[in-house]
């Protein structure tokens, strides 16, 4: 549980927006700390993601971005801190969240077709004893159509390109028909056509009133794609609307020496043009 004494001790030096998680945020965390072994991967992080918006989680490799998402979802245990999804604990909001894991986390030789994978997004709705009805099947096919993969429904998942696999994962999340979509690097290693297909779907979700939070690596597209930015490097480095939180200073602070000043200038220029 959330221990206020710990949280306060951990917060010295960081400005706290509010002490408690606001109920209108689709995802808010306070004082979140996660560690594997004895080194914290995420340390005392606060974040409040806005509703009906596209938010980016940005930070260098090993900054704890995936860990942050997994802890928010309860996939990895948290050491301390509080997570609220639509103002309630995660267990009560499972059916309102869809998750797209980092592509590398899966066994691609697994005996499953594309349609089988998308139907996994329906397992909770179908339950242990329920039958995968024709209506459910049609729904899964429809989600595949939305990501342009309807023709591939009966392929084994290992026989797809990386971009196509990413689209299948997105279709599986769509099948859940959630209100909050958490995506871990949806654009990693995909070609331009797939990137456009995915971003169109995500923006469509936002315009339909859903909230999207994505781990994002390509700094040059942050301004074009996202409304809200959350910069993390073990600790929270910056958070807010992209215009104010995604700046040369905050990038310097987040990436340290890993990004040369010229690179940051480039990003700022290209971002401004987008």
């Amino acid at each position: 549980m959330h221990r206020p004494d710990l949280a306060i001790a951990a917060h010295d030096g960081q400005a706290l927006p509010t002490d408690t998680c606001p109920a209108d945020s689709p995802l808010a965390v306070r004082g979140l700390t996660v560690s594997y072994g004895e080194k914290p991967a995420v340390f005392s992080v606060d974040a409040t993601f806005p509703a009906r918006a596209m938010s980016a989680i940005i930070g260098p490799n090993g900054a704890g971005k995936s860990t942050f998402l997994k802890a928010a979802l309860g996939v990895v245990p948290r050491l301390s801190g509080e997570v609220r999804v639509f103002g309630t604990p995660i267990e009560k909001a499972r059916d309102r969240i869809a998750y797209v894991p980092q592509r590398a986390s899966v066994d691609w030789d697994f005996p499953a077709t594309v349609l089988d994978v998308v139907q996994m997004g329906l397992y909770r709705r179908v339950g242990l004893l329920g039958r995968m009805s024709g209506r459910m099947r049609a729904l899964a096919l429809d989600c595949l159509g939305r990501v342009g993969m309807a023709d591939f429904a009966h392929r084994q998942i290992g026989q797809l390109s990386g971009g196509q696999q990413q689209r299948v994962f997105l279709a599986r999340a769509l099948a859940q028909d959630a209100d909050l979509y958490l995506l871990d690097e949806p654009f990693a290693g995909v070609d331009a056509a797939t990137e456009r297909a995915i971003i169109d779907v995500l923006k469509g979700l936002r315009d339909a009133g859903k909230s999207v939070v994505a781990v994002h690596h390509d700094l040059s597209t942050v301004r074009g794609y996202f409304d809200h930015a959350f910069l993390i490097n073990v600790r929270r480095m910056a958070e807010g609307p992209v215009e104010t939180a995604f700046t040369a200073e905050t990038l310097h602070a987040t990436y340290g020496g890993r990004l040369a000043t010229t690179q940051i200038d480039e990003v700022m220029l290209s971002g401004g043009a987008a």
Binding site: G74, V75, S105, V106, D107, V117, L182
Partner: peptide, 10 residues
């Protein structure tokens, strides 16, 4: 197939 996703589903 995908333990993280299973955990995220609850």
């Amino acid at each position: 197939f995908d333990a993280d996703y299973a955990a995220a589903l609850g």
